[in-house]
Amino acid sequence: MRIARFQHADKIKIGKIDDDTVRVFADAPPIEAIIASGLGAAHRLDVAETVPLAEVRLLAPLRPSSIRDFVAFEEHVDGVRRSVDGSAGVPEAWYDAPTFYFTNPHAIYGPGDDIPFPAASVARDFELEVAAIAGPEQSVFGYTIFNDWSARDLQSREMQVRLGPAKGKDFASSLGPWIVTADELEPYRDADGFLDLWCAAEVNGVEVGRDLLSNMGWTFETMIAYAGRDSLVKAGDVLGSGTVGNGGCLAELWGRNGKQDPPPLTDGDVVTLTVEGIGSLTNRITSGSENRELPRVRRRDPAQARAERQS
């Protein structure tokens, strides 16, 4: 089942997509409550009406309370390291556990939305990912496409402090076009538990990357279990696969090509991510507002600081 949030007749509604038709749920609770109730309850929701898909405006399928983004593809790690500092290979620590970072759940965009990049950024990038939506008791409720937009120039500077990423990432994430429930993708699961789905990225209609989701280092179930270790994963939390390899982002290609080829995204560029069994997610690049200069940092004189402590 494909569950969507959408706008129709000036109201936000929830329903399931059947080909070119939307079957609108009757008296549906918020999507977060549907996810928390589990797959069985979701399949039992009643339908109140049907409307053509062409008459609705798809929205981000949910507004998660948290987003964990993993880095589960070796090829991506190697390519981006080449882009950042010229080093090659994958750090041995990558193999120990599925590493992730938290990004901003308050800057979520949906299908067809314009993405406002930081105006100062000139190294604008996309990231092709699949996200698992956590269900009850750390199960997988379903999957959606996830674009982890990246301002690589901002990201490179701030990560020199050994913390982040922060402002290079927190301005936008895209989810959509809907949630495909986990049971629908079971036929794609291989013997090791990975989903054998083709993922592709296009910029202005030209394909720049393609990879299999099953090239991940860990399954989504393993990543959810690790995220919940000594912590809490709640139903509705979003867990990104990390960027697929073989051109799942521009930075990987920059690292392998030794130059920014293909070029960074600019205003007006259109990025489309397509995942087999899920669908396509398209967004256009724009620039956000110019920011004021920060106040200058206060640099402390170590000798003066010692004198103050002694006085």
Results as ranks from 00 to 15, higher is better:
residue 262 P to T: 09
residue 12 I to V: 11
residue 207 E to Y: 08
residue 106 H to T: 15
residue 115 I to L: 05
residue 254 W to M: 02
residue 181 T to Y: 00
residue 268 G to L: 07
residue 104 N to P: 12
residue 237 D to L: 05
residue 93 A to D: 10
residue 242 G to Y: 04
residue 256 R to I: 06
residue 33 A to W: 00
residue 119 A to D: 15
residue 163 L to S: 03
residue 90 V to H: 15
residue 31 I to T: 11
residue 56 V to N: 05
residue 222 T to W: 03
residue 294 L to H: 09
residue 135 G to A: 12
residue 149 W to N: 00
residue 38 G to V: 09
residue 170 D to N: 02
residue 229 R to Y: 13
residue 186 E to Y: 07
residue 235 A to D: 04
residue 46 D to H: 14
residue 285 I to P: 14
residue 204 N to E: 10
residue 12 I to G: 02
residue 145 I to A: 03
residue 311 S to W: 11
residue 129 E to N: 08
residue 43 H to Q: 13
residue 16 K to G: 01
residue 21 T to R: 02
residue 256 R to A: 06
residue 143 Y to G: 03
residue 178 W to Y: 04
residue 139 S to E: 02
residue 217 G to D: 15
residue 239 L to H: 12
residue 289 S to W: 13
residue 98 P to M: 06
residue 254 W to F: 01
residue 221 E to W: 03
residue 117 F to E: 07
residue 36 A to D: 10
residue 34 I to F: 10
residue 270 V to F: 10
residue 244 V to R: 08
residue 293 E to F: 14
residue 136 P to R: 07
residue 40 G to S: 10
residue 110 G to Y: 12
residue 189 R to Q: 06
residue 305 A to V: 15
residue 217 G to Q: 15
residue 67 I to K: 02
residue 24 V to H: 01
residue 216 M to H: 08
residue 283 N to Q: 15
residue 100 F to T: 15
residue 311 S to Y: 07
residue 193 G to L: 06
residue 58 L to F: 07
residue 178 W to P: 02
residue 97 A to I: 13
residue 310 Q to A: 14
residue 116 P to N: 13
residue 184 E to R: 09
residue 221 E to A: 08
residue 184 E to A: 11
residue 175 L to K: 00
residue 242 G to C: 10
residue 188 Y to E: 03
residue 233 V to E: 02
residue 175 L to P: 01
residue 186 E to N: 05
residue 293 E to P: 10
residue 233 V to R: 04
residue 173 S to Q: 04
residue 29 P to I: 03
residue 245 G to F: 11
residue 299 R to N: 08
residue 27 D to T: 12
residue 205 G to S: 01
residue 256 R to L: 10
residue 292 R to G: 14
residue 236 G to L: 04
residue 247 G to K: 00
residue 33 A to Q: 11
residue 166 A to W: 03
residue 280 S to R: 15
residue 230 D to Y: 14
residue 260 Q to V: 01
residue 260 Q to I: 00
residue 32 E to A: 11
residue 266 T to D: 07
residue 122 V to L: 09
residue 239 L to N: 00
residue 296 R to V: 13
residue 203 V to C: 01
residue 298 R to M: 15
residue 169 K to I: 01
residue 1 M to G: 06
residue 116 P to S: 08
residue 214 S to L: 02
residue 21 T to N: 02
residue 121 S to E: 03
residue 309 R to P: 06
residue 293 E to Q: 14
residue 9 A to Q: 09
residue 210 R to K: 13
residue 265 L to S: 01
residue 188 Y to A: 07
residue 122 V to D: 07
residue 128 L to A: 12
residue 210 R to P: 05
residue 213 L to M: 08
residue 20 D to W: 00
residue 310 Q to L: 14
residue 72 A to C: 07
residue 275 V to S: 06
residue 20 D to Y: 12
residue 294 L to T: 09
residue 308 E to I: 12
residue 159 M to N: 01
residue 303 A to L: 11
residue 291 N to D: 14
residue 15 G to Y: 07
residue 159 M to Y: 01
residue 276 E to A: 06
residue 200 A to R: 15
residue 164 G to A: 00
residue 48 A to H: 11
residue 235 A to V: 10
residue 274 T to Y: 05
residue 255 G to A: 06
residue 276 E to G: 05
residue 4 A to T: 08
residue 100 F to R: 09
